[in-house]
Design a protein around this nucleic acid. Structure first.
Lengths: 215, 215
DNA sequence: CGATCTATATATAACTG
DNA sequence: TCAGTTATATATAGATC
């Protein structure tokens, strides 16, 4: 917000960094106070400058809010590990939030054309995951039929390509071209990104195209 | 900041207040995260909604900052543990990584939008939404073989489920159980965001009833 | 530095589907 | 209710003093 956009990454020049720190810290506190007043919320903020100096904002006061928070997240004040666990939980929440943002941001760049291409795929906003990983136990006949049709289309597509492949393989130099290699790589890269979101949850891991398997 | 200026005083209508609370809370957290990244600061924020629900933001994590703060102000409340330190650190690393990705993605999105504005709005990034939409021209035989195997497995899986479906439909009461109802809803792709992220990829594909097979 | 001054980038109030 | 859009109010980057 200013004359020019600055990238959100560490400001290298310490003089600018210090100025920005002061300005933004006061901006943050102002926002916090507005949130308190407008919504009747209670907010505590603690900031440590890179130099280690502490600043804080609290409404009604930092300590009461911190106490309340710690009591909620650490029912027994003596079990430290649970405090750590809850800290992790918090982190996880943040992480998930950011992941969602990331996904949303990625979607934003995609064309509506692509949206429409996936007939029903309205689910653009959700985590990319492969539909065949979803349990099929509860599906109705209609849905199964749909899946079937899709698979058949897909099969034909692949078969056709397979055919082309076999033909072409007699002239080896045409086997892979640069463009497609790049495409494949970037696709695998996509999985890599969404993957980091999913692994943390543990159970469902998207599969890279060449690792496909069902068990 | 909006269509109209609102006075900084408690919002009376609870519906508006709730909306404002959500928006401003996320805005506050975003500002905080920018402050951390730009300036290398450490920030913890704790927010209690009027209803008493707790939200928090922390970089690197709420607990460590709160501890550090309390130590400076009240030596008796010293709580230290490194029990889960490494786990937290790991998470933090993930988090930071994703944050960077998010920022990068935002930049990318903006670039894309600019491109769109100036030129052909076509398929800017070549990444197909689903892997089967990716051009297969460049794939090697081995990869095609893998895909084929995958599809075959998938076909069998679907066929098996289809069978189950047909059998089960004769005893209607067993056709759906509570768990599956929810699953189907999200699978069909109503804009319901499923709680368990597991079905989020559900897209509905077109269908046809013959046998899928590969030869 | 720190306060002040713009031009811009962001956040968000109100609106919309 | 809930996400997305738009018009506007704020925050703030860079400049100047």
């Amino acid at each position: 917000m200013g004359r020019k956009r600055i990238p959100i990454e560490k400001i290298q020049r310490s003089e600018y960094r210090q100025v920005t720190f002061s300005k933004r810290r006061s901006g943050l506190f102002k926002k916090a106070s507005e949130l308190c007043i407008l919504c009747g919320a209670e907010v505590a903020i603690i900031v440590f400058s890179p130099a280690g100096k502490a600043f804080s904002f609290g409404h009604p006061c930092v300590e009461s809010i911190v106490d309340r928070f710690l009591n909620q997240h650490d029912m027994s004040n003596h079990v430290v590990s649970s405090a750590n666990a809850s800290a992790r939980e918090q982190q996880q929440q943040q992480y998930s939030e950011v992941v969602s943002q990331l996904e949303a941001e990625k979607k934003r760049g995609e064309t509506i054309e692509q949206l429409k291409r996936s007939e029903l795929g309205g689910n653009i906003n959700n985590n990319p995951q492969f539909w065949w990983d979803a349990p099929t136990d509860g599906l109705g006949l209609h849905q199964l039929e749909q899946i079937r049709l899709t698979l058949e289309d897909l099969r034909m597509k692949v078969a056709r390509k397979h055919q082309e492949m076999v033909m072409r393989s007699s002239s080896p130099s045409a086997f892979l071209d640069d463009q497609n290699v790049g495409m494949i790589e970037s696709f695998v890269g996509q999985n890599h990104i969404s993957t980091s979101a999913q692994y943390s949850g543990g159970s469902n891991m998207p599969i890279a195209p060449h690792d496909l398997c069902f068990n």
